[in-house]
Design a protein around this nucleic acid. Structure first.
Lengths: 111, 111
DNA sequence: CGTCCTACTTACCAAAAGGTAGGTACCTGA
DNA sequence: TCAGGTACCTACCTTTTGGTAAGTAGGACG
C-alpha cells in the first residue's frame, strides 16, 4: 500500500489484494476459521514469515480477524471479517477465470 | 510468471494479472484500441518503460494484440484479444468492490 | 532434565519489480 | 539544417518482495 488516491476501483482493489499470497489466504479462510499451522499447511509453498506478514497486514486492512485462545500450546484462529468476505466474493469470477483457462496459462512460455 | 502448476484458479489468475499495472492496462483497453502514447496518457503514473514491458508480456500471454501501422510518425495500436476481454470481465466485480469500498481503503493506515 | 508443541520473531540475503535518465530511428515541416 | 513527433531501447539504480535459518516463550510429557 503506497498510494492514497486511486483513479478507479480496480486500482484500489489491486492495491489491497496485491502480492503473491493475500488472495490465496483469503481463499483458504473461505470455508472456516483456521489456526496458524493449519493455514500454513493449506497454502503450499508459503513460508512462516510470509504467512504472518500477510496476516498482519490483512488484519490492519480489516480483512481478517485474529483470535487468541490462551492455552498451552498456543492456539490462534484467523477468520474473515465481513469486509474480507465481500472481497472474497469479488474474487470468485477471477478464480473461475483462472480455473477455466488453467491449461492456457500453464502453456505460456516463461522468461 | 514463475510457476508451472497451480493449486487453484485464483492462484493462476493472480499470476497472470499480477503486478502493479496489468489490470489497469487491461481496463484502459476495455473501450477501444489505443496507441502507445494514448495508453501512457490514460494511465496516470506509469513510465514508458513499465508500459512497454507490461504490454510485451501481455502480448506473450495472449491478452493484447499489437498492430503496427507503417507510417511516419509511427502508429502502433494495442487492442484486447478474446482472452483479454474474458479476463477483463472477470475483473469487473473486483473493480466494483474497490469502487464501493474506496473510502475504507484510502483510510487504511500505511506503514 | 531434556525434548516437543505451537506461534511466532529476528537477522540476513537474493531476486524481482519498478523508476530515472538518457539515446535511437524515421520522416516532417520551418 | 534542425527541432519535433512517435514508439521504442538501454543502462543503472532503488525499493519492494520473498526466502532461509535460526531463536524465543511457556508449559506438557517422559
Amino acid at each position: 500500500m503506497k498510494k492514497r488516491t486511486y483513479n478507479c476501483g480496480l486500482d484500489a482493489a489491486v492495491d489491497v489484494v496485491g502480492g503473491k499470497w493475500k488472495a490465496l489466504i483469503l481463499w483458504a479462510l473461505h470455508r472456516e476459521p483456521l489456526r496458524f499451522g493449519e493455514l500454513r499447511r493449506s497454502i503450499s509453498g508459503i513460508s512462516e514469515k510470509m504467512l504472518i506478514q500477510q496476516l498482519r497486514e490483512m488484519e490492519v486492512y480489516g480483512l481478517v480477524h485474529r483470535e487468541v485462545h490462551r492455552q498451552v500450546p498456543p492456539k490462534v484462529e484467523y477468520s474473515l471479517t465481513e469486509f474480507g468476505r465481500s472481497l472474497n466474493e469479488a474474487l470468485i469470477p477471477l478464480g473461475d477465470w483462472g480455473h477455466r483457462h488453467m491449461a492456457t496459462i500453464e502453456a505460456i512460455p516463461r522468461d
